[in-house]
Amino acid sequence: MEAEKRSRGLLKVDVDECKGCGLCVEACPPHVISMSEKLNHYGYRTATYVGEGCTACGICFMVCPEPGAITVLKAVYRASDEPGRSLRAEAKEVACASN
């Protein structure tokens, strides 16, 4: 988790929806997606975020043929002294809804 947060972007893959076509692996400009070694429940190797380097460009999402297999998130910057808004909660909500 900490490692992910060092990048501008974050990538989530729904391993049940991913069919392992590999288009995202090919498309990802910073090459931060690979195919899993393990097979998922349906016998596919699935796309996996290597854990860092995502730029949140969204290209993997665009080339992925499954509606919800990939969710791309982008880092939100704010000053450390800014009073805590509900941003975090919002982001979570959306991410959950998309998974």
């Binding site: 972007g9 791309v72 939100v76 991410a95």
Partner: peptide, 18 residues
């Protein structure tokens, strides 16, 4: 910890029309 990156928000996700 209070880093620069506060949180992540979704920029590309499943469309509402699905």
């Amino acid at each position: 910890s209070s880093g620069l990156i506060a949180e992540y928000e979704v920029v590309q996700g499943k469309a509402k029309s699905f």
